[in-house]
Simulated scan of single mutants.
Amino acid sequence: MGLLSNRVTRESLKAGDHIYSWRTAYIYAHHGIYIGDDKVIHFTRRGQEVGTGTVLDVLLVSSGPIKSQELCPNCTTSEDGHGVVVSCLNCFLAGGVLYKFEYAVSPALFLAKARGGTCTLAVSDEDEIVVHRAKYLLENGFGCYNLFKKNCEDFAIYCKTGHVVVDEGTIGRSGQAISTIGGSLAAVLSSPLRFVTTNVYGIAVTAVGVYCVSRYAADIGMRSDVVKIQVEDLTRSLAVGLLRVIEPQISMNLAPQSTQIVSQ
Results as ranks from 00 to 15, higher is better:
Ile33Ser: 05
Leu89Asp: 04
Glu139Arg: 13
Glu153Ser: 01
Ala25Gly: 11
Ala122Trp: 04
Cys91Leu: 06
Leu111Cys: 14
Leu189Phe: 15
Thr9Lys: 13
Gly95Glu: 04
Leu234Lys: 00
Thr180Glu: 07
Ser12His: 04
Arg7Asp: 09
Pro65Lys: 15
Gly117Pro: 02
Gly32Asp: 08
Gly47His: 10
Gly64Cys: 15
Ile157Asn: 05
Leu193His: 11
Gly36Trp: 09
Ala156Met: 03
Ser87Ile: 08
Phe142Arg: 04
Tyr136Ile: 03
Gly116Gln: 01
Arg244Asp: 09
Pro65His: 15
Gln230Ser: 12
Leu238Met: 06
Gly16Ala: 08
Cys75Glu: 11
Arg173Val: 07
Gly143Met: 10
Asn199Val: 06
Lys67His: 14
Lys39Thr: 02
Val84Gly: 01
Tyr145Pro: 00
Arg223Gln: 05
Asn146Met: 05
Val40Ile: 10
Leu3Tyr: 14
Met222Val: 03
Ile33His: 08
Lys150Phe: 05
Gly182His: 06
Ala108Thr: 08
Leu138Arg: 04
Ile229Phe: 00
Gly16Phe: 06
Gly183Phe: 07
Tyr216His: 02
Tyr201Phe: 14
Met252Ser: 08
Lys160Val: 01
Tyr201Pro: 02
Asn146Ile: 03
Ser12Asp: 03
Tyr34Met: 00
Glu153Gly: 03
Arg115Val: 10
Thr44Gln: 03
